[in-house]
Structures are given as C-alpha cells and as structure tokens.
Amino acid sequence: MARITCAALTKSYGAVLAVDALELSIGHGEFMVLLGPSGCGKTTTLNMIAGLEEISAGRLLFDETEVTWTPPHKREVAMVFQSYALYPNKTVRENIAFPLRLRGQSASEIERAVGAAAEQLEITHLLGRRPNELSGGQRQRVALGRAIVRKPSVFLMDEPLSNLDATLRLSMRGLIKRLHQELKATFVYVTHDQAEAMTLADRIAVMKGGLIQQLDTPEGIYERPANIFVAGFLGSPPINLVEGVIAGGAFTRGDFRLALTNPPQEGRAVVLGLRPEDVSAGGDVTARVELVSPLGSETHLDVLAEGGVALTLRVPKEWRAAPGDRLSFGIDPARLHIFDKASETRL
C-alpha cells in the first residue's frame, strides 16, 4: 500500500479551520511536497495522514483501504520531525531499533536491520552515543534511520531540515533525495523552503489558509503559477508584480506599455507578473538603474521604468551597469504572467 488519497480531508479546531476539504492524490513512489507559509495547515495535513491528528471530516485512503480511523502504528508510515524527536535516554542504536523492538522482532533481525540502516546513513560510528552527544545533522540522520529501518511504504517528513544550517541543509537534501530513489517509497514532505520543494519534489502542493492553491510539478508551478500567491511564493528574488490595465492589446500602466501575445479583454484591471530572469539584452524597454547587487555568478538590478514601474532584474554578470545608468532590455511577451486583479487568478 503506497498510494495516498485524501478526499475532502478536513480538520477544524473549534472555529479554526486548519485544513479545508483537501483533495489530494499521491501516487505510489511519488515525492510530494506540501509547501506554504506558516500556519497554512501543512503539519496538520501530515499529522492526519500519519494518524496523529483525528480527522474532522472527509476520508483518507491508502491504496483502496480506508484508514480514516486507523491508529498510526497500523498505517505503516514512518515520520521524521523537525525537532528530530529522538528518545533522549536511548542510544542511537536503541533509538533506531525501537520500532522493531515494539514489533517483537528477534534480536538478530534487529541487529542486522539497524546495522544496514546505519551503514546507509553513514552513522555506524555513532551507534553507541546518546542524542545529546550528536550534532543537529547527525541527529536528523538518526531520525531518518529510525524511519527507514522499518521499511515502511510511506515516509512523512515535517520540515526535517529546518533546524540545520544552510550548508548542512544542502547535503541533507541530497541524502533525502538519494533515500527516496533507493527506497522507492512514497514521500510526503512538508516545508516552507521553496528551494527544498523545487529540488526534491515530483509534485508540489502549494497551500495557503488550509487550501491547496496549486498542485503541479515544480516546473509547472514555476512556469504557470495559478494565482498571484503561488507566483509570489516561488522564486528568488521574487517575481515582479505590477498592477495595470489592458489597453490596445497591451499591458499599460501610465507610460509603461508591454504588448501581449494574446491579451485579455480591453480595459480589464490586471496584475502583470515578470520573473526577474525573464529579460534579454537590448530591447525596447528602458529604465534607470537604481541599485546594483552583484552576486558573483549573476547580478541583481533594481530598476525604475516608465510610469514609475519598479522592477528587479536578474541578469548575467557581464551586464555592466551602475546606478543612474539608462538601461535597455527586452521582455519576451510569451514569458509574462497575467493575473486578474480582482480574483488574483491566472488569465
């Protein structure tokens, strides 16, 4: 069993609707990332899948079996927590062995399984230590060990890397991706870090206010954001959003005009979305450079175009610009995102 189906899954705490009729189908062996800002219901969703949180309404299925009321240990899921949640009084070996011991496996079986898991995670030399003698990254490896040792078909991870520093996070990200490929299990991974989501996910569910805003592949979410929230949540530096109207088949705001390939109806109030990297050298858009932020591999330019339109551009480091310069660049109309101003949805 490894396909997860959430049907109108709902969780309410009194008047607070933490998760609102969530529809989500996660395929066998898929790496699903739940992405969203703090308080959007990611953890609640994950806990409902784990069986740690009672489901208020709706149904949850693993393959064809309904597990809405099944207790956590009967669901055969493993979970990894942001806080690691290692048993502080047990050694690393005992921590990893714990789920197997509870299942009444023989000592030799446990020994072998713990050894294999430790080897896979390169923590064999730590087996005799206690959690308080480990670094954050080592602790999270142990927590992963405790999860994989049971060979579950579903892995649930709640911001497992959030407590680690940036470099460690990068290498642990690689480790998790490798584990997913080796174990061929279904992963549901909660994060509010867009880079983690983009690199790890087969598909991303972007959540806000207990609702899924968009469910798509990382490319799909980045290239075709369904609404302004999703567009703004992914990308660094964030997408440029400019309010304006459609006039003469072009996006207009004061003197700022951009011709569109298939414009919405005339006079409509819209929001234009432009990814900072979607500009090319030489073109008919001119702007004054306000701020130059060289990053080595690339440069970020804050520019002010006609009509008081402020844009951030991500350009190759070869573009030489200084504050005060006039800059001409091109924008490919096909790469523009147009959202309806009232409904904030993509047009």
């Binding site: 784990a50 207790p71 979970m79 927590f81 405790r146």
Partner: peptide, 14 residues
C-alpha cells in the same frame, strides 16, 4: 516533555 516524542512513539507503534 516535547509533544513530538509522544508522536514519534505513536508512529513507532508504542
């Protein structure tokens, strides 16, 4: 006692 420890134990089958 952190609540996560109890959650982890429940998932582990305790």
């Amino acid at each position: 006692i952190p609540e996560d420890l109890y959650r982890a134990a429940r998932v582990d089958g305790a």
